[in-house]
Design a protein around this nucleic acid. Structure first.
Lengths: 224, 224
DNA sequence: TCCTGATTTAAGACTTTTTTAAGAGTTCAT
DNA sequence: ATGAACTCTTAAAAAAGTCTTAAATCAGGA
């Protein structure tokens, strides 16, 4: 559940450095090298913007306004300018913080975290789809033909595993590894029982469709 | 409607200077000369806190935590210390900005305005709604069918967390992280008890509705 | 046909959740 | 400081849900 941070910075070297710094610290950086590009790249997945003030073309001030108009997220301005009156202007335009270059990486990270904390939101829900089944890992929900299905923890993990490997056969030992976290003893019937229950619940929802296919002696996979 | 700013600063001269500066710029300053005094003076009229880091008695770090606990507003730390690692610590404790003394008055005013603006934005959307429940984070009130419900601090935080993630499952460990600030030991029953109490209070208010759903082995979520 | 592996069912073991109650810990006003 | 009121945590027992096991049955391949 990484947060996306948009970097708008024309200096390729600094842009690169920021990208590495952010991704090393668990964020998902998106790079833009001009104001216009930044505005285009800005969408609702973005949680925060790092904006260089000294861009060619559009002024940083203009850009802030347009960014905030499009989708309202915290903007941290980075710039070599130290002029206080400039800072004041930026703040009044909607910048949320200001870091003077050269900045200390840890301080920048701390300021990013502080702004994000305020603006806590987002989280891109991960949805797996196959035929008429929709699995949402973020809320542990499953729908089949739009109807909610209640699955137990292991059943859910099992279905996720199959749906994350569409049309690839999941061997029994792979499944035991992933879903149960232990090596199966060959005569263990647990997985079979769980597959059976899963099929039953899916069938209740859509009796005309077969979703899970048995690969004899090997394991299971989703049916084409 | 002037915004109240709490100044916590032991140096009488600086405290005085800040008071004048703020009142000249349309704010309503309240002065405190120690951390303890600051915590006492802090109430829900306060919109922002200017906190000196170098106080006698309690450490600035302790004070931030206690202030934020009492009523969540932006805290701008002022200090002569320039050490970056110190800054980082403070940010992670919940400081929202950091100004090094001696500071430029205009920059300070700009930072105050930025934090206030930010806080105002987030507090507009601070009314959380779900079905017939309305939660107002700014005054810690909860209504169900228009009837006020009294919740304890943890119950309130728990309900907020659920309502901030509508229809998404909050895992137990996420909840312990957010509401209790510690990793849960697997056999901890505290959360369960709080959920039980929360449900009971909601049920008293509306016996016909189920609000909180258990996701077995995972956590809880709001019911569709 | 026989052997092996898969499916289904049901029962009991096991785990997680709910509820209650009691005591420890806090907070608040006096 | 003190006591009252409230909140939080812990513990224990009951309830609810899930998992595994075992046994009977079924299906595929030689």
């Amino acid at each position: 559940m990484n947060q996306t941070i948009l970097i708008i910075e024309d200096d390729v070297e600094i842009n690169d450095m920021l990208r590495v710094l952010l991704s090393q610290n668990g964020y998902h950086p998106v790079c833009a090298y001009s104001g216009t590009e930044g505005i285009l790249a800005h969408n609702k997945d973005v949680s925060l913007i790092l904006l260089d003030l000294m861009l060619p073309g559009k002024s940083g001030e203009e850009i802030i306004q347009q960014l905030k108009e499009k989708h309202h997220v915290p903007v941290i301005v980075t710039s070599a300018i130290c002029d206080v009156s400039k800072k004041v202007d930026l703040f009044s335009l909607g910048a949320d913080d200001y870091v003077t270059k050269p900045f200390n990486n840890d301080e920048l990270l701390a300021r990013i975290a502080a702004r994000l904390r305020n603006h806590a939101e987002t989280s891109i829900s991960q949805k797996l789809c196959y035929k008429d089944i929709v699995v949402d890992k973020s809320d542990f929900s499953v729908q089949c033909r739009g109807i909610a299905i209640e699955l137990s923890r292991h059943e859910f993990a099992l279905l996720c595993m199959l749906m994350e490997n569409p049309l690839r056969t999941c061997t029994k030992s792979m499944i035991y590894d992933t879903v149960w976290d232990y090596e199966n003893s060959a005569d263990d019937n647990t997985l079979n029982v769980h597959i059976s229950k899963l099929r039953k619940k899916l069938k209740e929802c859509n009796p005309d469709e077969e979703y899970i296919e048995t690969v004899w002696g090997i394991g299971y996979r989703l049916k084409k």
